[in-house]
C-alpha cells in the first residue's frame, strides 16, 4: 500500500462513457468528476511512477472489466488540483493498492458540487485509450 497522497501525485479517473469528454478538443467534461447522488467522493487511481501501459492495465482490469464496460480513456489530475478545491485525496486500497478517493464534495449542495467539477475538469488532461496506447 502506498503512503498518504503527495500533493504532486498524478491521479487518474478512468472514463467509460463518451458523455464524459469532448472529442472535439480532447478535453474532460465536468460530469466526469461529479460523484453520484448521495456520495461525496469519486474514485481515482494513483499513477505515480507507473508506465503508461501499467496505468491502462489497471483501468482495464480493475475498472472497465469489473463493470463490463469498455475503457475509453482517463482524466488525469494532480492531487493538489483537488486539494485546492477543499477536497482531500484518501488512499482506499480496494480493489487495488493504488486506488484512492477524492473526497469532500458537498453532498447536500449539488450546485457547488458541479462548480467544483468544472474546476477539476478545467485542470484535467484527457488521455484517450486508442490514441495513447
Amino acid at each position: 500500500m502506498l503512503e498518504s497522497v503527495n500533493p504532486e501525485e498524478p491521479l487518474s479517473r478512468y472514463i467509460l462513457k463518451k458523455a464524459y469528454y469532448r472529442p472535439s478538443d480532447n478535453t474532460v467534461k465536468p460530469n466526469a468528476f461529479m460523484p453520484p447522488s448521495g456520495k461525496d467522493d469519486v474514485s481515482v487511481y494513483r499513477t505515480v511512477s507507473l508506465s503508461n501501459e501499467d496505468i491502462w492495465q489497471i483501468g482495464m482490469t480493475y475498472v472497465a472489466q469489473k463493470r463490463g464496460m469498455p475503457l475509453l480513456g482517463r482524466a488525469e489530475l494532480i492531487a493538489c488540483d483537488a486539494i485546492a478545491q477543499g477536497l482531500s485525496v484518501k488512499p482506499d486500497p480496494v480493489p487495488h493498492p493504488r486506488h484512492a478517493n477524492i473526497s469532500g464534495f458537498p453532498i447536500d449542495n449539488s450546485a457547488k458540487t458541479r462548480m467544483i467539477a468544472l474546476e477539476l475538469a478545467a485542470r484535467a488532461t484527457l488521455h484517450l485509450l486508442k490514441i495513447d496506447s
Binding site: 464524459y20 469532448r22 467534461k29 460530469n31 460523484p35 453520484p36 447522488s37 449539488s110 458541479r114
Partner: peptide
Amino acid sequence: VSPEPLGTIAFEWY
C-alpha cells in the same frame, strides 16, 4: 447536452 451522474441533464455552453 450531457447526462450527469445525479440523473440530471446538463446544458453546456463551451
